[in-house]
Design a protein around this nucleic acid. Structure first.
Lengths: 194, 194
DNA sequence: ACAGGTTGGCTAGCGCTGCTAGAATCGGGA
DNA sequence: TCCCGATTCTAGCAGCGCTAGCCAACCTGT
């Protein structure tokens, strides 16, 4: 029993090591630099070890994505709690969301851009994903009109933020006016509210 | 002179052949299936021929993207002209845009998702890109408030549509409620207008 | 303390990718 | 007809994700 648990603990630690190394490498040099060989070297094990923990590279990215969602949720919550008033809160959360996407582009891509087989909009979605979405819901709920489907409205708001970030980051939207675009978006979503 | 022009014409035709083959292959089997070997086989030339026309695979994708923008512009224009009233037109254009993204996912990715070094938000952007954006501008302009920066508002609206499509297509938003989300978006962008 | 068996990591390699150097071949001009 | 230049092909490089099969280290039971 003790030996078994020690082994399981060591395995779990190494799994954390893999995810952390993948994330740090991706944030430092982009996902293109995260090859299985490079990652194996980083954790000082051979390549096949990765495959005893994860089904493949995509699964490693998915694990990084889940970690990222947990952090995003924390940052969104902090932003919401720091502001007061329905509109200011939505603006703060929108700001925090886009700031996250720009500050941690590799992490953001793993979470929301890269094709991944994480269950998203279902009850089976990993808890951190639901928490992050829940933070958005809490920010959107106060500005919903009577009869609005709040989750659906949140999804729409989220998609708008996501579009702003991805187009901005791929240089399809000029960097300069990001804040003004975000303002316009918040304005239209909070039209007629405090 | 005659020989020279014939050669240039043949070269141009082959370049069209490459772009068309790349596009068809991508639409049929996705961009992962578009390898330089496969593409070379498709056009019945050897691999290096591709590199005498384009700098690399990304440049081929960029050429496909430009072609896609021209088509998108046509479809947006048709949608706008078929509808009447500011709000209905914006809705029709939004509908057409998202329908395009869902009907031609590979094309859409080349245009707006894949990292590409096409100049976008500058005067040097290829004409088809500017036309497609121009169509969006024409749809947004009537619902702009006094003092609104119309191009900026268009960019914001575009980003929202883009976010809806990408999250939908990556299964991060459930397929079912797409139309309702689009409705919500149009509603918020046209609040208080006809 | 030692043999047996199992667990687990490593070496080596497969088939693929984008891309390119240099050989070979084809076509037009003297 | 011969030659020269442009053009196309063959062959190969380095690197990718992933895996089969060998080998060693470790725990277990005597």
């Amino acid at each position: 029993m003790s030996i078994q648990t020690r082994r399981e603990r060591e395995r779990a630690e190494r799994e954390r090591l893999i995810v952390t190394a993948a994330r740090e490498l991706a944030e430092a040099e982009g996902w293109d630099a995260v090859t299985t060989r490079r990652l194996a070297a980083e954790i000082e094990y051979s390549q096949p070890v990765l495959y005893s923990h994860f089904k493949g590279k995509d699964a490693i990215m998915a694990a990084v994505a889940v970690e990222g969602c947990a952090e995003l949720a924390v940052e969104l919550r902090a932003a919401r709690e720091a502001a007061s008033g329905a509109r200011a809160r939505l603006a703060a959360v929108g700001e925090a969301y886009t700031a996250f996407g720009r500050r941690r582009p590799a992490l953001y891509d793993a979470m929301f851009t890269h094709a991944v087989d994480l269950p998203f909009a279902t009850p089976e979605a990993p808890a951190p994903l639901q928490e992050a979405f829940g933070e958005l819901v809490r920010a959107v709920e106060p500005i919903a009109a009577d009869g609005d489907d709040v989750p659906l409205l949140t999804e729409t708001f989220w998609a708008s933020l996501h579009g702003l970030i991805t187009l901005l980051r791929s240089a399809r939207l000029p960097e300069a006016d990001h804040a003004r675009r975000l303002d316009l978006l918040i304005g239209h979503f909070t039209a007629g509210r405090v």
